[in-house]
């Protein structure tokens, strides 16, 4: 009985911590993005609200929340609101299977810093990722407007194409690790003394492309394409309802997929890896916090890389994007599976 209560309490605490981190960080990533974009564009960015605009996300949130809730006259109100829920919930749920660090013991309880260490974690990730299609398709449909409809159709086309590529891309690490559990995948990389990026560069590139496509980042941001579709499927949304879509797409999803990429290719919370030799930890002085810092550091670097792309490149056309998915990325991923099957015994030893 006691262990059940403890389990529930621990789970609730984990949920609160993760939700707090994800939504709080998600909001503050808007500030990070604005600052990074500003410095790429040789301007200071937000400077007025708080020190270097640090309170800007709060001001933005307040502004969005206090805005009038507009609704298109001939839209479908139920679906219109459902789309927001469908966008936010699956994207956040992905964090249930993201391992932040190694198992530790606190007050006699063994705690894994992962909400649920299910043995089909990756399947769950991509299942939830595919749910994003529904959110966007419904948002476009329920708005009863042409621009959202076109935008959502574009996005649906992209996600369906890249869903296939990304699934085949992660096959490589899966073969090497021999498990679907995210926690176990990291453990295997530590045991095998190998970040999978060293033997899976192709898979990583395909994964990165798919990440950009699924989250609607440049060069694949055609579902909003300001110049053609104004802002695509969010045209008819206002206030916080509008604010949630970019928050989910650009920050929560990027964050979750970056975390998954770190888990799959960069050994999760492990420090710098020398292939087949071992790990070097320049942050050893942080003691038990070092794994968390490493995890955070890797996700941050990946996130900044995506921002850098976003503010540099032009965007592709829809036909070119799907063409790349089916004609380049999918064959690459398939070749990668074959190559992995050949080198896998070396890694397993």
């Amino acid at each position: 009985m006691e262990s059940v209560v403890a389990g529930v309490v621990i789970a609730v605490i984990k949920i609160l911590v993760i939700l707090g981190i994800v939504l709080g960080v998600g909001a503050y990533l808007t500030w990070v993005e604005r600052k990074v974009a500003a410095h790429i564009q040789r301007r200071p960015g937000p400077m007025v609200v708080g020190w270097h605009g640090l309170l800007q996300p709060i001001a933005d949130g307040l502004k969005l929340i206090t805005k009038e809730d507009l609704f298109p006259r001939y839209g479908n109100k139920f679906l219109y609101n459902l789309a927001i829920v469908l966008a936010l919930v699956p994207a956040t749920l992905v964090f249930a299977v993201v391992p932040f660090g190694p198992e530790f013991e606190l007050f006699g309880y063994r705690i894994k810093p992962i909400l649920t260490d299910v043995n089909v974690a990756l399947l769950l990730v991509f299942g939830l990722g595919s749910l994003a299609v529904y959110a966007i398709a419904i948002a476009g449909w329920a708005s009863n407007s042409k621009y959202p409809l076109i935008g959502s159709m574009r996005k649906a086309g992209i996600i369906i194409s890249y869903e296939v590529a990304i699934t085949f891309a992660v096959m490589g690490p899966l073969i090497l690790a021999g498990t679907l559990s995210t926690y176990e995948i990291v453990q295997r990389q530590i045991e095998q003394n190998l970040w999978y990026i060293w033997v899976q560069p192709i898979a990583f590139v395909v994964f990165l492309f798919s990440l950009l496509a699924e989250t609607g980042r440049v060069p694949f941001d055609i579902q909003e394409a300001e110049a053609e579709l104004v802002t695509g499927f969010t045209v008819e949304y206002g206030g916080m309802k509008f604010g949630l879509f970019p928050l989910v797409e650009w920050y929560v999803e990027v964050l979750s997929l970056s975390a998954i990429a770190v888990v799959l290719f960069f050994g999760g919370w492990s420090p710098i890896n020398i292939p087949f030799m071992g790990f070097v930890d320049p942050l050893f002085f942080l003691g038990p916090f070092s794994p968390y810092v490493w995890f955070l550091l890797k996700v941050t670097v990946l996130f900044l890389f995506i921002l850098w792309l976003h503010w540099t490149l032009p965007r592709y056309r829809i036909d070119q994007i799907t063409e790349i998915a089916w004609k380049v990325m999918l064959p690459l991923a398939l070749i990668n599976i074959v190559l992995t099957a050949i080198i896998a015994p070396v890694v397993w030893r």
Binding site: A37, Q41, R42, V218, A227, T312, P314
Partner: peptide
């Protein structure tokens, strides 16, 4: 032109 094609940064460079 760059802005229309999604290259957001060139816009600000040019405007500067």
């Amino acid at each position: 032109y760059a802005l229309d094609l999604g290259a957001l940064t060139v816009f600000l460079y040019a405007f500067k």
